[in-house]
Amino acid sequence: MIGIVILGSFIAIIIVAFASIVEKRLADSIVLSMGVGLGSVVLFFIFQAPDVALTEAVIGAGISSVIFLMALKHLKASR
């Protein structure tokens, strides 16, 4: 059971990462890169690393996306 979950998570992460890179709108691209972080949280939990999963959940889904979105706002605001 664990093998098919790992395989599926890796395929999902790679698809979301590729979509995040080729996406034209930058805000959508940042939200898709949050999806990569979320998928890696699932994988860290399956790999029996709850400490790393907790850190990645807070950083990847919370603070990193806010930093990217704020930078995007600053770049768009003074155009």
């Binding site: 400490d51 999963a53 907790l54 850190t55 807070v58 919370g62 603070i63 806010v66």
Partner: peptide, 25 residues
Amino acid sequence: YVMVYGHLSPGGGFQGGVIVASAFL
């Protein structure tokens, strides 16, 4: 809680500090 119970359960200083920062965020 995550900070103080870091030696007993999953968690610790790095995670707890980031959670506190997200509250201020």
